[in-house]
Amino acid sequence: MNTIAKRTTQCILKWLAKAHIAKTKPYIIVIAGTTRRAWIKEAVERALLERNTLVRSSKKHFNAELGLPLSILDLPSGEGNARKWIGVLWQAFKKVADFRKKTISRERIEHLVLELAIDTPRDMDYLLSIVKPNMVVMTTVTMVYAEQFETLDNVAHEFEALAAALPWNGILVLNADDDRIRELSHAYKGKTVTYGFAEDAQFRAVDARRTETGEEFRFEVKRKELESYRKKINRFGKHHIYAELVREIVLDNFKAQPKDFFNRMAKGLLDRG
């Protein structure tokens, strides 16, 4: 696709995605950071499914100027093919213009888990012009995009805009082990939850060790009293421990709604999960 065609497609998709959000009003959970997004997204999705909610998450790499609106609209990419892109745009129009009660009720109760990826300064502003999050989970600020941003502080500054975009009743989930991410708590006055190995993390992993079948750690959560028990996951790597902590945070913040669950089951809507 040439630049003009790409910009036009990008612009149309942006407005259609905004219209779709306005119509369906999903609860939007954004995963951002330079690494580990995929596993955090998977953990959030898993937790929401455990809570019997309808959830849809973005496909891998559908997280930037073209991918994000496609994720919101639940449409595939046209790849490098102009005809395919016309088909995608037509599908998007049809979706946005579909005001049938059944469609709206199906999509209105949805939790949408989106990855936002930035690779140049001010990318976040553009992405936030498409979507406003209700909950943000931040992972890390690492050197992955250092060339484009000159310093890691500049990368963190992009994420600051994301935290500041949360509504008053939003939730900001921060990795307590990453200093720049921790600092983002200053950018948001609402509910903030921290996770990690740091001593002051609210959802904390302690005494992690590797076994033959995966990671094992003591899970601690600071409520009125300290809750603590050992957990085992069948994956290897610290990033899976972080993902597990985020899963616990989601479970803690989203209560199961059995009534809705049975209603949806009766309507045959649950298979969408």
Binding site: T35, V144, G214, R235
Partner: peptide
Amino acid sequence: GLPELRETIEEKLAEEGMYYDFENE
């Protein structure tokens, strides 16, 4: 290697039932 690539490799391996840590393995 690039962390993003190793993350992708870990995901691909997991799809095939092989669980390896992209950061160290």
